[in-house]
Amino acid sequence: MSVLTVQNLSSAYEKKLVLDSLTFSVNEGTLTGIVGPNGAGKSTMIKAILGLQPKISGSIEFFNGNEKKINQRVGYVPQRGAVDWDFPTNVLDVVTMGLYGQIGWLRFPNKKHRQLALEALEKVSMSDFAHRQISQLSGGQQQRVFLARALVQDADLYFMDEPFAGVDAKTEKTIISVLKELIDLGKTVMVVHHDLQTVPYYFDHVLLLNKELIAHGPTNETFTPSYLAQTYGGAIQWLGRDNNDRSFVQQ
């Protein structure tokens, strides 16, 4: 079943086209890596789908258009650098923000919400940091806090913008296990990803993007040298190949 249908999506920054009529649909329970060179429009695509970036044309349908209120069912993990980590707040408070949409106007977070936030922190091994000021976190810890904030929202479709960028090994492991858990629960996740080497290990689907959609589908069908060369404009070198292990060097 399709949880997201995108048709003819185009978007521009100051009259420069950054997304050129993308059309694709994403099936329930898939874990998709969004891959493409810098400036390919990966973050812009997520933002346009979420309505955070104006689109020139196109239509976006969540959950076959059955859901009117999709905000609670669609989760978003922005890039870590998008927020000010000196903001006066602590870890638990940031995670609780994932529930703000469900709490409703003129209501305040209560014990129950904080309990849910603590459980989410447990899943990313950050319980010990619940009352830590956010400016005192390392990059990987910040990423795990963002992940917990998305988990607590309990959405059905997640968009994550470069969660693996610049994180430590422990965080990387945590993110992978959380992604697996989400997929096991029948949720759908789309992840902007930079490291080509790990793509076949992490994702069951790949979406190759460079302003226009190059390919989208199961990893073994789309993550191929020819599609990659098309995506990166030939600036990629094929190192070696066997059925399970593939590696690339980006030039």
Binding site: L50, V74, D84, F87, T89, V94, Y100
Partner: peptide, 22 residues
């Protein structure tokens, strides 16, 4: 005071706030 959590989330992370429907 009445919109404390809305001020907090739209100030700290406007992108998340917008995606949650604020």
């Amino acid at each position: 005071l009445l919109f404390f959590k809305e001020w907090k989330i739209t100030t700290f992370d406007p992108a998340l706030a917008a995606s949650l429907g604020f």
